[in-house]
Amino acid sequence: MNIFRFAGDMTHLASVLVLLLKIHTIKSCAGISLKTQELYALVFATRYLDLFTDYISLYNTLMKLIFLGSSFSIVWYIRYHKIVRRSYDKDQDTFRHYFLVLPCLLLALLINEKFTFREVMWTFSLYLEAVAILPQLVLLQRTRNIDNLTGQYVFLLGAYRALYILNWIYRYFTEPHYVHWITWISGLVQTLLYADFFYYYFQSWKNNVKLELPA
């Protein structure tokens, strides 16, 4: 464990807690893409298949349970909670996320480190996580005005993967034969997808104006 990875995990944890806090306290999911949340639940479900078979550390198991629990409860809130669901803007959240799932699955079947069910599922979760934010970014473009909790959520979500890239660089230089191209490339793609959001987020923060994304 290194500081970059720990900071990345804490940032990731903060992003899901910010979202849960927003939904649970103000009972609203305005501006939140249910599709991105469903994709994230799928990412965690396919990545943490080893939850009950390989014990790595208490920290690892605990964090996996938190991510699984939070992502599925967020989906539940937006889908079924009688108050929260009313603020879900399904006419705007129209990204066909199934078009993301299938290519990621096919790609995982083609490009993976080992052709086993667990490894393909794990690789699928990496590719899917890289594009899971797209419905959310599209929704933000459409709804234009971004309340700051949603802005913070997306920012933290992007920052966590950027910190993971630092972690991979650190591990590459400190651990012999630590090479995982699939992880690195999908993590880089994921972070680049946030790049334009980061740019506008930083601009709005610097000029102290409300975050507006160009149409």
Partner: peptide
């Protein structure tokens, strides 16, 4: 679990 594998990450 060989700790150097990336599977020890979240």
């Amino acid at each position: 679990i060989n700790a150097d594998s990336v599977k020890d990450e979240l």
